[in-house]
């Protein structure tokens, strides 16, 4: 389980695989003002990234993984 949902607060942990995309979609759809925390994230599968781009929840935290932190997360936060 790498998608942990607590009401509107969604935490992505470890390496998020393609399967997690579906879980994430339902969590996002079920939340009024979803917040996604990526600080314990080691990888985000393309499908997961795509979901975050589509739903544009608030994304928080600095990922442990440097590639994610520097190159991927900024796209999910800004723009």
């Amino acid at each position: 389980m790498t998608v942990v949902v607590e009401n509107d607060f969604i935490r992505l942990e470890g390496a998020c695989a393609a399967e997690d995309a579906e879980t994430l979609v339902s969590a996002l759809q079920g939340a009024a003002d979803p917040i996604v925390d990526v600080s314990r994230c080691l990888h985000l599968h393309g499908a997961v990234v795509q979901v975050l781009l589509a739903f544009r929840p608030s994304v928080r935290g600095m990922a442990e993984d440097i590639f994610l932190r520097d190159w991927v997360i900024p796209h999910l936060v800004a723009d």
Binding site: A18, H43, H45, G46, A47, L53, H75
Partner: peptide
């Protein structure tokens, strides 16, 4: 996994991930 592939690109200077 597109993201995993991008992770392996050397010498990244700029990256844009969009839809």
């Amino acid at each position: 996994d597109p993201i995993a592939l991008v992770r392996r690109v050397p010498g990244l200077v700029a990256l844009r991930i969009g839809r």
